[in-house]
Simulated assay, not measured.
Amino acid sequence: MNSNDIQEFISFLTTRFKIEREKFDRSGVYAYTQRLLAYNSNKIEGSTLTEEQTASLFDHGTLPRSNDYYRAKDVEEMNGHFLMFNKMLDTLEEPLSQDLIKQFHYELKSGVFEDRANGYAIGDYKKRPNMIGMYQTVRPENVEAEMQILMDWYQHQSVTISVLSEFHAGYESIHPFQDGNGRTGRLLLFRECLKNTLIPVVIEDANRNEYLEALAECRKEHCTDKLTRLFEKEQAFYFDKCRYFC
């Protein structure tokens, strides 16, 4: 695709997102993107909800009858993701900031009973150290300073998909929140693609292992090539799916 085609596509997306959301349209690209991003991003983190259940929750606010139990946290986080996406649309014209990132996290997590019961900070940076597997992340007392370094670097970049790979890897290595880092990080990725006239990235759960391996390579070898290639593949996936609505 040439730059004009991409610009037209991004203009189409942002226009349709606004119109369809305002009209409560559940048949277009806005609803499709809400369901696609929420399902895959939550599934990567272990959600047990299916694509069909995700769609029913978004479209009707209900879940199909099932002989299995629904995990309350999965439902709460799915609804939170829908709200976080809407918050992203409402603030798309604002510059990216630490405060805005905290607002996204609040939308994602404010309705999650388990996190509140565990005393997790909601809409604020973590208060306890956390890890990614065996990998230590930034300690709570250093998060704000490390996030500011990352933001200062990012704001001086001419944003490309490779720059977004570095930003995403940096964000995930800081792991600023007690929980929900992956989901907020992937929403930021989607948002910054829209803002910078890049085809958005939606990481598919089917590519979860490739995604985690790429992030591990970023941490260990400080190389984002594998992550950038995955993002480019996921851009093609999302564009191909959205052409139906154009």
Rank of each mutant, 00 (worst) to 15 (best):
Asn4Leu: 14
Asp5Tyr: 07
Glu8Phe: 15
Glu8Pro: 00
Phe9Tyr: 15
Ile10Val: 15
Ser11His: 11
Phe12Lys: 10
Phe12Glu: 02
Phe12Ile: 09
Leu13Asp: 05
Thr14Pro: 03
Thr15Asn: 15
Thr15Glu: 15
Arg16Tyr: 11
Arg16Cys: 05
Phe17Ile: 01
Lys18Pro: 02
Lys18Gln: 12
Glu20Ile: 08
Glu20Val: 07
Arg21Leu: 07
Arg21Tyr: 14
Arg21Val: 02
Glu22His: 11
Glu22Thr: 08
Lys23Gly: 04
Ser27Met: 07
Ser27Cys: 08
Gly28Gln: 01
Val29Thr: 11
Val29Phe: 02
Tyr30Cys: 01
Tyr30Asp: 00
Ala31Thr: 06
Ala31Cys: 06
Ala31Arg: 05
Thr33Ile: 07
Arg35Tyr: 00
Arg35Gln: 06
Leu36Thr: 09
Leu36Asn: 04
Leu37His: 01
Ala38Ile: 12
Ala38Ser: 15
Asn40Arg: 09
Asn40Asp: 15
Asn40His: 15
Ser41Asp: 02
Asn42Phe: 13
Asn42Pro: 05
Lys43Ala: 14
Glu45Asp: 06
Glu45His: 07
Gly46Ser: 03
Gly46Gln: 01
Ser47Arg: 06
Thr48Leu: 12
Thr48Ala: 09
Thr48Gly: 00
Leu49Lys: 02
Leu49Cys: 10
Leu49Gln: 02
Thr50His: 01
Thr50Arg: 06
Glu52Thr: 09
Glu52Gln: 11
Gln53Ala: 09
Thr54His: 04
Thr54Asn: 01
Ala55Asp: 09
Ala55Ile: 13
Ala55Phe: 03
Ala55Asn: 02
Ser56Pro: 00
Leu57Glu: 06
Phe58Thr: 01
Phe58Lys: 02
Phe58Asp: 01
Phe58Ile: 14
Asp59His: 09
His60Asn: 08
His60Gly: 00
His60Ser: 05
Gly61Glu: 08
Thr62Ala: 03
Thr62Leu: 03
Leu63Thr: 12
Leu63Lys: 03
Leu63Tyr: 13
Pro64Asp: 14
Pro64Cys: 10
Arg65Pro: 03
Arg65Ala: 12
Arg65Gly: 10
Arg65Thr: 12
Ser66Ile: 06
Ser66Val: 08
Asp68Trp: 14
Asp68Cys: 05
Asp68Asn: 14
Tyr69His: 15
Tyr69Pro: 00
Tyr69Ala: 13
Tyr70Gln: 03
Tyr70Met: 09
Arg71Ser: 08
Ala72Met: 12
Ala72Cys: 00
Ala72His: 08
Lys73Met: 14
Lys73Ala: 10
Val75Gly: 04
Val75Tyr: 07
Val75Pro: 02
Glu77Thr: 11
Met78Ser: 10
Met78Asn: 11
Met78Asp: 07
Asn79Ser: 10
Gly80Cys: 09
Gly80Lys: 07
His81Ala: 06
His81Glu: 13
His81Cys: 02
Phe82Asn: 05
Phe82Glu: 04
Phe82Ala: 05
Leu83Lys: 13
Met84Phe: 03
Met84Trp: 04
Met84Cys: 03
Phe85Arg: 01
Phe85Trp: 02
Phe85Gln: 01
Asn86Thr: 09
Leu89Ile: 12
Leu89Gln: 01
Leu89Met: 14
Leu89Tyr: 06
